[in-house]
Amino acid sequence: MRMLAALIAMLLSAPVLAQSALPPAPYANRQISDPAQERKAKALMETIRCLTCQSQSIADSDASLAGDMRSQIRERIMAGEEPEHIRAWLIERYGDWVSYEPTADPILWPLWGAPVLLIGLGLLVLRGRIRRKRS
């Protein structure tokens, strides 16, 4: 048992892949007391991509930078800032990449056109089918 305690002490003293010398930022893991504001903040955080572990949103990430971003977003929402304004501010710094929510950038227009195109193509195939049936 003592060996175990020593092992744990050793493990804890050398944190795996340190990302900070400080405890997490105040609102990294703390909700805003107003549920409506928290909902807004949460919805935004779920669509901001984490820069450290690049395939998660900052809402699902243990990375310190993600925690700091969460804290900053919550603080700015509490100060009355609109989520879309914060998103635009982040995109200004990190580019469209940082937003999982596709932006209105022209390069993303085909993405929004894809459903229309696919359904149109499907109907085209289907129409040929039905016409043949009638004849």
């Binding site: 779920e46 669509t47 991509r49 949103s57 580019g95 469209d96 990449w97 940082v98 937003s99 999982y100 929510e101 596709p102 932006t103 950038d105 390069i107 993303l108 993405l111 894809a114 459903p115 696919l118």
Partner: peptide
């Protein structure tokens, strides 16, 4: 849609533009 959405970042990167397509889309 899933195929296009998944590969879209790869397509735009060919034009030097990094984007993310995720849950919201």
């Amino acid at each position: 849609l899933v195929l296009i959405g998944t590969l879209y970042p790869l397509m735009t990167e060919a034009f030097g533009h990094k984007v993310s397509v995720g849950a919201p889309y």
